[in-house]
Design a protein around this nucleic acid. Structure first.
Lengths: 136, 136
DNA sequence: TTCTCTGCAAATGCTTTGCAGAGGC
DNA sequence: GCCTCTGCAAAGCATTTGCAGAGAA
């Protein structure tokens, strides 16, 4: 199956570089973004290793996969529950740290046991609004 | 660019079949699902036409693209705002028609002009919970 | 040795695109 | 004729997988 099967996690230089890049990163990078960033300081990394590492980190609960963007997956090292605003123009993803009251009433739940909740907000960010204004 | 550029929309038999399948459909099908369903009654449809039609319907605002599932896109003919529960085992998507209070406080909005909002709930559906119980 | 991890390259799977032909007005 | 739409096949991308070799214990 996956990389290591139920044994230890080996902290290789590649993995360390990826984790260092993700640490405290709020840019919600894609695998390709991470690959590009890590490559700069660490030329011996392959994209496959980035994907592999992300999978491991995901299973360790150190990273969350975001399926907000239909084009590619994004990764978020922030593990506390939070929400996102997405700019529909530049695709920027910004955190929203607010505790919304998201409970599905029992009569709508259809027997679901809900374990996670997440809100997306779609709109236009300040930068893109400025650009649009400048172009007009 | 797209199919028809700013001219009329031609309601071909293929498109009618796709729209008929989507009408009142709450199963949140993928393009492949739609293709399979339409093929049964209408053998002369190609997957490319399904994608093409979905793109047109999306631009007409008659269908929403859901990026909930990282594996493939799903399509939803329900245009009124609503939310979704997703079973993490069988990937089933179920509507949640409740008007949650989803407003981003101005001091968190970072200049975003928010135009849409959507909540996802992740969990295990009743069927999958039963299966798990039976297997135990 | 044993086991995981890595890079490369090939493969996969969803989605898009190019294009010639069909059909409507 | 003019234009859009269609099916097919090829192309495009993001992501995954197979595998031989490297490296740590």
């Amino acid at each position: 199956m996956g990389p290591q099967r139920e044994r230890g996690f080996k902290l290789t230089p590649q993995r360390a570089a990826i984790m260092a890049y993700l640490e405290g990163n709020h840019s919600h990078p894609s695998a390709e973004d991470i690959y590009a960033a890590v490559l700069e300081k660490y030329p011996m990394v392959s994209l496959a290793t980035v994907y592999n590492t992300l999978e491991v980190l995901k299973q360790m609960g150190k990273v969350t996969e975001l399926n907000i963007d239909g084009e590619r997956k994004h990764f978020d090292p922030e593990t506390e529950p939070h929400h996102h605003m997405i700019c529909t123009r530049c695709k920027k993803i910004v955190n929203v740290r607010k505790d919304f009251d998201l409970e599905v009433p029992r009569d709508m739940a259809e027997g679901f046991t809900i374990e996670g909740r997440h809100a997306d907000f779609y709109g236009v960010c300040a930068d893109c609004a400025d650009e649009a204004k400048a172009a007009a």
